[in-house]
Design a protein around this nucleic acid. Sequence first.
DNA 1: AATATATAATTGTTTATGCAACTATATGAT
DNA 2: ATCATATAGTTGCATAAACAATTATATATT
Lengths: 164, 164
Amino acid sequence: MERNKEKGKFEQQQDQELPLGSVGFMMGVTYRKLTALLQQRLKDYEITPEQWSVLYTIVRSQGLIQKEIADRTHKDKPATTRILDHLESKGLIFKEVGKQDRRSFLVYCTDKGRKVIEATIPIEAGMTDVVKAVLSENELVHLMDMLMRIQAHASEMLEQESRE
Amino acid sequence: MERNKEKGKFEQQQDQELPLGSVGFMMGVTYRKLTALLQQRLKDYEITPEQWSVLYTIVRSQGLIQKEIADRTHKDKPATTRILDHLESKGLIFKEVGKQDRRSFLVYCTDKGRKVIEATIPIEAGMTDVVKAVLSENELVHLMDMLMRIQAHASEMLEQESRE
DNA sequence: AATATATAATTGTTTATGCAACTATATGAT
DNA sequence: ATCATATAGTTGCATAAACAATTATATATT
């Protein structure tokens, strides 16, 4: 009887402490927290974290086609189109129709776009510092390795399972 | 000259292999891949992963107020309101006005809601198996621990920095 | 050459997040 | 008791992801 009561109390407590213990949800929560912090820090530059990642990719490699940008940033084509729209309307990038392949556009950053990235690279780097404040160098490396393994395997599974 | 050429080739390759190495972005990509897989597997039940997490919380603890659900699922109040709207329109939950506090609603699941969760718990558990296919038991524990540390620290930083 | 098929990009729809503004009810201080 | 403040919930707006369908151009097949 007493043990039952105790167990009841324990379970009730667990209920409050561990509402959703699965990896996927934890990862989502952590990602959103990190992103919100980065967004906060990028506020003065009027660019979102996802826009930053796309613009960064463009600054590093001028003249990519959208499909290639989509692959490198792990976005699908519609998402890429729309983020590029935002970047274009802010005057940070421009497009040019492909000469050989007229289906595609070559994407370039403007001077303004390059300057935004140059100015914000330290901010993005600061996010790694935030993580390193609670993780050792080894742990960070291990974390990245695990994330890559999970990501690769989940992609594989998804492709497999959606193919029928 | 030759060395320069080689280096150019190497950098170009790096360019393709490591487009965005930062933790935050990697975590977002991994989260989305896991979520997409879960969504695929939940397809027959007409419920999304985020809806699942909210419904699961309700099934485990009947009569929570929305604020409490928001806290446990790490969502803000608007997001919670809208997800509850979806669950309600599918007949999986219902609300009841609070007796003591008439600002709040007590949320309960319907029979249908409970059955959906009971039927899909194995599917959600299957996501852990997907992760365990590429991570040892120890690594998974370590990963969860690191995620919690990062999440807590990022929350702290965000609160600190948004407070001025 | 004509036709089928693949690919690049766009548009529309649904779901979800984050932020700000708002309503209604509770609580605290004078 | 009144007035200020806090809290629960909702609504509106911007951004983004996932999926399906569409358009336009390339490539492959016969």
